[in-house]
Design a protein around this nucleic acid. Structure first.
Length: 209
DNA sequence: TTGTGTTTTATTGCCTCC
DNA sequence: GGAGGCAATAAAACACAA
């Protein structure tokens, strides 16, 4: 075997292994296992055998090209790698299962990250709701105060432009209107989150799309 | 060296497709 | 009905801490 590459040598080594035989005793290292395997050569080996690195590399390469294995390709690959076609089929089957698991794991992580981000946003939105409620409460107090002042000064006077029982609701809205459209104006960024001039959290909806 | 958890190879049983 | 795929599982091989 003077002109053989290591890959070819390994393929030949494994292709010449007898299919069934005595049990290989459990060993603690790959090196010992290899030694045992060499010792077992000629006297048979255990029914389960690890594929060589070269064989795995070869199969991985082919799996990368096409994950499914039609009959002709299976026979061809088996001959090339020095394995039984059944072993190649089993390897592809197991490899597909591992690939699927990995895909699922990645999908899970992706969804989990999205969920975490959503929870964080929910938290910020809840804070914002509290702040807005506080602002609303303050605005209502202010309305009452102004309304009381107006009544004091204008007893029997003009009922200026209000509608129904809340004549000054529009003035209150005007007073706080800038808060609703203040993006980019006096806003600020804190801890990586954007807030408007009134400290209200500005949610980034883009990541949800 | 051993116990234990993980990975890899192989088997089994069921399902679908032709 | 046979071939091939998949899920579940067994069991050998392996890695590694103690």
């Amino acid at each position: 075997m003077a002109n053989m590459s290591q890959v070819e040598e390994e393929m030949l080594f494994y292709s010449q292994m007898p299919e069934a035989g005595g049990e290989i005793k459990r060993t603690t290292t790959r090196r010992r296992r290899k030694k045992k395997a060499k010792e077992a050569e000629g006297e048979g080996e255990g029914r389960k055998r690890r594929l060589s690195d070269a064989q795995v590399k070869f199969l991985e390469m082919n799996f990368g090209e096409e994950r499914k294995l039609e009959s002709g390709r299976k026979v061809h690959l088996a001959a090339e790698v020095g394995l039984d076609p059944k072993q190649v089929a089993v390897w592809f089957q197991n490899r597909r299962a591992r690939w699927k698991n990995k895909q699922l794991e990645e999908e899970y992580l992706k969804l989990k990250n999205q969920q975490d981000a959503s929870l964080l946003d929910k938290c910020h939105l809840q804070v914002q709701v509290l702040k807005l409620k506080q602002q609303l409460s303050e605005a209502e107090d202010e309305i009452k105060r102004l309304s009381a002042c107006g009544n004091e000064g204008l007893i029997g006077g003009v009922g200026g432009g209000g509608e129904g029982g809340s004549p000054s609701s529009s003035s209150a809205t005007n007073a706080y209107q800038p808060a609703l459209g203040a993006e980019g104006g006096d806003g600020m960024i804190m801890d990586g989150y954007e807030y408007n001039a009134f400290g209200n959290y500005l949610m980034d909806w883009d990541y949800l799309l």
